[in-house]
Computed example of a mutant assay.
Amino acid sequence: MDIRRVTRSEAVEEAGHLFDAAPQRFADEDCHLLVAYVDGFPAGMVTGVEMPHPGKGTEMFLYELSVDDRFRGRGIGRSLVTALARLARERGCQGLWTATGEDDRPADDEDQAVHTWEFGRP
């Protein structure tokens, strides 16, 4: 498995099957797309958005995580989250967070859980 930060519109389109809707090109350098490739095929993706906060510094919000059904159960999702956390640290973020539904249901369900990773201050 190879995880790469994607910025080219062709690569975003190539991974289009991983998105809920047709992907659009990222124009903001604070928005990040990481794609996991298995034998050259886009098998999963994670998106993150840097969010500045006056009292906390900048945190990375894990916006969306998707793994192609054919590649589930291989640790791709975990590897993508780890790669996003590494990118967040490299960019000086104080932490990473996301919201999900309990039992990994979609976050728009009634019961939600917030997950946080704190990196500490430099």
Rank of each mutant, 00 (worst) to 15 (best):
E29K: 06
R25T: 14
F41S: 03
H32W: 11
T98M: 13
R91L: 02
E50R: 06
E64M: 00
V35M: 05
L80V: 05
D111G: 01
P122G: 09
P42M: 10
E110Q: 11
P23D: 00
G95Y: 13
F41Y: 15
W97L: 07
E64D: 14
D103S: 09
R89G: 00
T82K: 15
D30V: 08
P122I: 01
R4N: 09
T7R: 14
R121G: 02
R89F: 10
A22L: 02
R121S: 04
C93T: 05
T47R: 03
I3V: 03
Y37M: 07
W97D: 08
G57Y: 11
G120T: 08
V46H: 01
G75S: 08
F41K: 13
K56E: 05
T116V: 10
E118C: 04
D104K: 11
E13C: 02
A27I: 12
V81D: 00
L87C: 02
D68C: 06
V6H: 01
F71M: 09
V6K: 02
D28H: 10
E118W: 15
A83G: 09
A36F: 07
A43V: 11
G73S: 10
W117E: 09
T82V: 13
E64Y: 07
A27T: 15
A107Q: 08
T7P: 00
E29N: 11
T100K: 07
T7D: 04
L84P: 06
A43F: 12
H53F: 08
F119H: 09
A27M: 12
H115K: 05
T100G: 02
G55T: 13
S66T: 02
R78H: 14
G120F: 09
